[in-house]
């Protein structure tokens, strides 16, 4: 009788172990799928693009000859864009998050706003381009300028920044606020001296990740009229501009193979920029986890 139980048990256990192994292999496969695809992509891009990854790429303007072509105006355009977008989206995004989390009453209206923001985070980027064209280019008369582009991109990243900042603020323990209030602090004192300092690294992580998404966007900027051939650097906020993804897209569509290799070099530069931003985000997150 005893033996019988043991056998059944053993069978059950080995069955479960087999099951476990199958799941393990499935999950490993799921992980490897992405990794293999990504490394294949990176390897082809590096082998195609490494040859043209020279100073000319950074110092020359676009040219009809792939060998003389560079992406100076595009790199500078992307950096300007980042410089404009970062402060605007930080102030607006974090401000909105503070309001929604700390000040706004929890009623049907704020729930509706919340729902809208979450929905906006999933809207295709080209829609923001159309919105930007209508509002900034046409209505505000900012023309097809760097400023219009930066504001359009701000719209694109705002929902992501708001959601990320809200989560960061929500993660600050209730006790901190209570302690602050107990000492007689006002709402603003509590927010500025207790909540925000605890949440800021997580907020920064969200902001940087959102900005790195914007750096890779092409569609909305093409809609609002960023040019493709720009042989000068923007001198004011109202100047015409181009950005890296647009330049890369144009090179890929060219018939000449040399341009496609050049596009690969451009992708490497863009990728390095994104990796730097993501590493910064990870470092901030690690710091944050230690401190809470």
């Amino acid at each position: 009788m005893n033996n019988l139980f043991q056998d059944a048990n053993r069978q059950q256990i080995s069955g479960r172990r087999r099951n476990d192994l199958i799941w393990r292999i499935l999950f490993l496969g799921a992980t490897m799928f992405g990794i293999v695809a990504l490394s294949a992509l990176i390897i082809t891009i590096i082998t195609d693009g490494i040859a043209r990854l020279n100073p000319d790429l950074f110092t020359n303007y676009p040219s009809r000859r792939a060998s003389a072509s560079g992406m100076k105006s595009a790199i500078v355009g992307s950096l300007y864009m980042l410089c404009l977008m970062a402060p605007i989206s930080f102030v607006l995004g974090v401000g909105a998050a503070i309001y929604l989390e700390e000040y706004a009453p929890k009623n049907r209206f704020t729930r509706l706003i919340q729902l809208n923001i979450s929905t906006l985070a999933g809207v295709p980027s080209i829609v923001y381009g159309i919105l930007g064209l209508a509002i900034f280019v046409r209505t505000f008369g900012l023309e097809r300028s760097l400023l219009s582009g930066a504001l359009t991109m701000t719209l694109l990243v705002l929902p992501i920044i708001i959601v990320a900042s809200q989560e960061a603020i929500r993660a600050v323990p209730r006790a901190r606020r209570d302690a602050s209030f107990a000492l007689g602090a006002t709402k603003w004192q509590t927010v500025s001296r207790s909540v925000l300092p605890s949440a800021i690294s997580a907020i920064m992580t969200g902001v940087i990740l959102a900005l790195s998404r914007a750096i890779g966007e092409t569609a909305p900027l093409i809609i609002i009229g960023a040019a493709t051939y720009v042989a000068f650097l923007p001198e004011s906020l109202f100047d015409t501009f181009t950005v890296m993804p647009i330049q890369i897209y144009n090179w890929i569509a060219r018939p000449q193979e040399a341009f496609q290799d050049l596009a690969a070099s451009g992708i490497i530069v863009l990728m390095i920029m994104l990796v730097i931003m993501n590493v910064a985000a990870i470092m901030l997150r690690n710091k944050y986890q230690k401190n809470i």
């Binding site: 009229g225 720009v230 042989a231």
Partner: peptide
């Protein structure tokens, strides 16, 4: 535009698609 800019470097040309 590239050739024109060689002779007239101060004309700021932007071409879109």
């Amino acid at each position: 535009a590239e050739e024109f800019n060689r002779e007239n470097p101060d004309v700021r040309i932007a071409v879109g698609v």
